[in-house]
Amino acid sequence: MQTQRIWPQVIALVALTAITVAAPPAKGFMNPDLARILLWHLPCALLSTIFLFMSAVWGFRAIASPTSDNDARLAASLDLTTALAILTLLTGSVFSRVQWGAWWSWDPRQTSYLFVALILLGGMALRSGLDEPVKRAKASAGYTLVMLVPIAFLTFVYPRLPQVQSLHPSDTIQQGSLDNPYRIGVLCGMLAIGFVATCLWRLRVRALELELQ
């Protein structure tokens, strides 16, 4: 049986920790030293969106052809999207405590992302409630495609509505408002967390395929 080596993933996370410590304090924040958590928060948020689109692709394939391969890839993508969304919420909560003075501020951006996490958890609840494999694959794929509409609204539309007043910075990357060390740090975070997430995704796919067989 093939064993999974974990040292590359550990090295990636240790390297990201070192980059976080080495990064200069972030200017323009209430607590510039602790704003370094941005190097974990932003990659988690971006990667959860990437995994969400991956889930949609596998969802589309699984609803057209509910094979165990497609279903396992869809389920693994959904699990990773949920895990990354929860990490985004947790790191965001730490950021909120440090910068805005409360663990949870009911900020529109924070709340809309909580809605996203709840929608993703609803998908997991649906999957756990269905025993018959074909039905589960189709229902899970259907839910993934349906949830794209509310999630796209909550992630891309709602925070940009003119009546929504948020403390959360918006369009940070598009406006180029990140300093060079932070831009490189976020890129490193994407690579490190992305690498770990991809390894976990592959492991989860293998485990689910064995389960389905």
């Binding site: 809605f115 709840l118 929608i119 958890l121 609803g122 998908g123 609840a125 649906l126 409630g129 269905l130 025993d131 018959e132 039905k135 229902a139 259907g142 839910y143 349906v146 949830m147 509310p150 609204f153 909550l154 709602y158």
Partner: peptide
């Protein structure tokens, strides 16, 4: 849509609310 998705599930009545409510939040 939720009705279509949860039919066939073990605890379908509870699941319908658990799946439907988050989808309806926006």
């Amino acid at each position: 849509i939720v009705g279509v998705l949860v039919s066939g599930a073990r605890n379908r009545w509870v699941l319908a609310a658990a799946v439907g409510l988050p989808l309806l939040l926006p």
